[in-house]
Structures are given as structure tokens and as C-alpha cells.
Design a protein around this nucleic acid. Structure first.
Lengths: 264, 264
DNA sequence: CCCGCTGTTCCATTATTTGGAACACAATTT
DNA sequence: AAATTGTGTTCCAAATAATGGAACAGCGGG
């Protein structure tokens, strides 16, 4: 009942919430974790922690490797592949992504806003696309990705402000936006031009142009982007692509409206 | 304590088990489900079911779309992408898969046995690899895939028998093996030749050669395969590839042994 | 042989889940 | 328009599962 405006991380979902926090802990770590590693990070008594881990392993969400360390389980893959294969927005968007890819020759992404992250829902690469999963599903910060900034630019003001204020700005490169004010300022420009640029803000040598894609009912807030190495994606190039990417975003939104009715 | 030999689906993992069963139900359905749809399939009282769904939604494992239907949540993507990116066996195997792909020009898979399914851990396609996720993470039956049969062929006898007896054989094509006996018979041949063939047993027009990859401690049982359209993968072609694929499997097992110590 | 580190088990206490029933609300039928 | 059926949501005492402290086991090193 007491769901605040989003200040403190409250409302643990009973047992499930605790177990998921644990799963997230192990999944987001850099490598396999031993019991003690987890114990140190989880602020739970040993007995409890142990039982929760056993449950997660029994469910296949974690695995207990031969060296006695916990690693993410493969059941997650199965669940996720179905989640992805059936995603409505991804299915609708797919052909437009392909068009953008062909037009530009560069890598094209579809991302969606979840909390303070962008989750990449799809990715289409130029030639030999080898490592796809490495990007799809990845959660990246909103404030240093083209799709992230584009998505924020179409949120209502009363939603953007608090979200921006709550971010912790990690300086990935010298160009990364470093404060809520800087971000809000940039969003103004994005609203005027209709496209968001990532000028090596997340990774040095990588630039991108993005346009927002959203539904009025808020069920989807995200964007599409064209990404590539800075030496190919000169500022002139990016400029050239602003029109096609805005058109693509518009076409996608039209398609969503047709497929999903008046919600869009 | 009472973990039977695998006869009846026992040992619900307390609350987590029930909730995961629910998540699986929704995730494995053909499309979005309404509350009532789920209620009909879940044999739980409305109140309970409702709260569980709310919890799953709060955790991002399910989403409640604008039409009031439940769909798999995107948090699964994030969890899975990390599970995949870090998977030890996949990382070790990757270069060998690439070699096989280059040698054959066809699609190459890495799969691992989980229960009575093969989960595809990796896939490398020839040219434009567009739909990757659609295969990675997918769980396919053991008895009608090359990787599945190869994996079974290296299990100890006392493990194969009960597993085979418990399968329900779904006839995907006229060539699908239809009984435990047929499967066990085929496994004999596979043990002799060292490779497993899929002669359009899962999908008409698709053939594959596979070789098993496993560790003696049982922490990995799976295989690699080369898959493609029947008109290109003639029986002579498959024959040609038996040696390279067996060599690749052996190299992978050597690499595992080196990386993981004497476990392999 | 003893010590310290790691992981596992036990069980009374405590908190959460359960599930029946009542409550809303909308769409359909009479 | 009123009644009915179908859907989804809320409530709360009873049943059940999770908790967590402490004791137990195993092992490698000093």
C-alpha cells in the first residue's frame, strides 16, 4: 500500500524478493562466488542464506559448480529466450531495424527503459554478427546511451526530474554527462532536434544517433539507435542519419498503434 | 533428504518452487495470458494466484501489459545475458565452434543436457546471423536432436535407461524416433561411430552431425553439432564431417581439462 | 594434534503464505 | 434498464514456511 514516489528501495516482495536479490547478486558478480563471498555481501545469517541458495540451485536458477562455487543457472537462458522471442514490441520493430541497418551499414539497436537502465531488446549488426547475446539483454545506464537519453526526452517532466536526481553518474569516459543538471540540459536539446547523440559518452571510440519510440500509455518507452566506431560515424554522418532514424521511429510508432489499437 | 530416483515430480522448493512453476507456465505459453487463463492451469485458489502474480510482476519477472495480460518480463533478459556471457564452458568452446563453422560453412551449435532437454548454449551461423537468440537458450528434446543423442550416448547406462523410459516421444517428423527402445538402439550405434546424426528427426529438411563433449565428473554433458538444410547436408557430406567434428569435440574436452583441472 | 576457516544441519520462534469468501467492475443477456 | 455472468481484486484467521542462532562437520595448514 505504501508505495512511495521512489525514494528508498522498499517493498521487498516477501520471500521472492529476497531470493531474487540473491540471484541478482550472484548473477551480477564478476565470476563464480563461494558461499562465504555471498555471505559477506548478503547480510543474512548463514543458515538462511544456505537454504536460499539450495533452493535457487534446485530450481536451476543458480548452479553449484564442481569447485563448490555458485554460478548463474541455465534455466535463465530458457526462460529468457522465450521472453525475447515473444516480445511484442520487438516483433513489430524488427523489420524497421533491418531497414535502418541496411541503410546505414552499421549496428542498429532497440532499447527499452526499465527503471534507470536501458535494456537492449534487439540488435542487428552489419556483416558477421557473431556476438549477439553479449548485447541483447544488457542493461546500460540511461544517461550515457543514445537510446537512454532519447527515451528520457519523451517522459513527462514530473517523471524525468526525480529519475535524473536519483541517478549516480559514473564517468565512463571524459565525455560522459556528470550531473543531473547536465542531463536535463541535454534533454532540452534532444526534444528540439528529435534525436539523441552519444558522443563517446559510454565507450571511447563509439558514437551513436538515437530516436525515441514510445506509447502514450507508457507501456513502452525506449528508442532505436545506429551505433558505430567514431572514425566512421563522423558528425556529418550522424547528421545525415537524423532524418531516417526519426522516420523509422515514427513508422514504428505507427505500426505499434495499428497492432495494439488506440493504446499507442 | 528423500530425493527419489526421479520418478515423481516431488520436492517443491517451498515458495520459490511454486512461483517458478507459475513463471514457467506463463513463459512457456504461446502468448500473453489473462488471469483466468492462468487460474485454469495452475490449480491454485484465486487469492493465492493473484498475490503470486503481483509478486512476479513487482520483481520484473512478469509484466502486466496494457490489456491486462501477463507476459514474460524483461528482467529475465538481463539475468540471462549475464548467465550466458560468463558461462565457462561456452567461453572455452567458442573458438572451436568458430573453426567448425569456417570449415563447414554451416551453422554450428553447442548444447548441454539439462534434465531431458538440450539447452543450446551457443550458435554460430555462416553469413548474416540475424536471429540468434531464437535458438540460444532454447530447450529441445534429447531424442530428436544430434546433440541430444550424442550427449545421451556418453551417459552411464544406469542413467540413460530411466531417462529414456521417462521420455514422452513426440513425433515431430516421420523420422523422429518413437520409443525408448529405438532410442537405446540408436545410442549403441552412436557409441560405436562416435557421432550422432539427426536425419530430419526434429524438423523436415534439417539434418545435423553431432559429437559429444563431456567431463568425467558430470559437470558438463553435451555436444557440438553442424546443422543445415538436407539438400546441402547430403549423407556424404555428413560422413565427411564426422572426423573434424570428433576432433573438435576432443580438442574442446582437452581444453576443458586444462582450464578446469583434473575434473574433466 | 590443534586451530581456524568454510560449509552444513537443526529446531523453536517468527513471519509469510494460504485460501475461502466477499467485494468490485465490466460486458453481455434478458 | 435490470439482471446475470465473467473477471479481477481485496481481506483476514488459520496453516505453513522462512528465520537465525547455535551447534556440528570437514579440511588444510601450522
Amino acid at each position: 500500500m505504501a508505495r512511495g514516489k521512489g525514494a528508498s528501495r522498499e517493498s521487498e516482495t516477501g520471500t521472492l524478493g529476497k531470493v531474487m536479490a540473491l540471484l541478482e547478486l550472484v548473477t551480477h558478480s564478476d565470476g563464480p562466488m563461494r558461499f562465504t563471498d555471498i555471505l559477506a555481501l548478503s547480510s543474512q545469517p548463514r543458515g538462511t542464506l544456505h537454504r536460499q541458495l539450495v533452493h535457487l540451485v534446485e530450481e536451476g536458477l543458480l548452479e553449484f559448480d564442481a569447485d563448490g562455487r555458485y554460478v548463474p543457472g541455465l534455466r535463465l537462458l530458457d526462460l529468457a529466450s522465450r521472453s525475447w522471442a515473444r516480445n511484442e514490441f520487438r516483433l513489430i520493430t524488427e523489420p524497421y531495424l533491418k531497414d535502418l541497418q541496411q541503410m546505414s551499414g552499421e549496428t542498429v539497436h532497440l532499447g527499452v527503459l526499465r527503471g534507470t537502465s536501458i535494456i537492449y531488446l534487439d540488435k542487428i549488426e552489419g556483416r558477421q554478427s557473431v556476438r549477439m547475446y553479449s548485447q541483447i539483454g544488457n542493461a546500460s545506464p540511461v544517461y550515457c546511451t543514445g537510446v537512454g537519453k532519447a527515451a528520457l526526452s519523451v517522459l513527462p517532466d514530473d517523471a524525468v526530474e526525480p529519475l535524473a536526481r536519483n541517478l549516480s553518474f559514473n564517468r565512463f569516459t571524459p565525455h560522459t554527462l556528470g550531473s543531473a543538471d547536465a542531463l536535463l540540459q541535454e534533454l532540452k536539446t534532444i526534444r528540439e532536434t528529435g534525436v539523441a547523440l552519444d558522443r563517446e559518452e559510454h565507450e571511447l571510440g563509439i558514437r551513436c544517433v538515437a530516436a525515441a519510440v514510445w506509447t502514450v500509455d507508457g507501456s513502452f518507452t525506449g528508442g532505436v539507435s545506429i551505433t558505430g566506431p567514431a572514425y566512421r560515424l563522423t558528425l556529418e554522418r550522424l547528421e545525415e542519419w537524423t532524418t531516417p532514424i526519426k522516420q523509422a521511429a515514427q513508422s514504428i510508432m505507427d505500426a505499434i498503434r495499428i497492432r495494439l489499437g488506440p493504446r499507442g
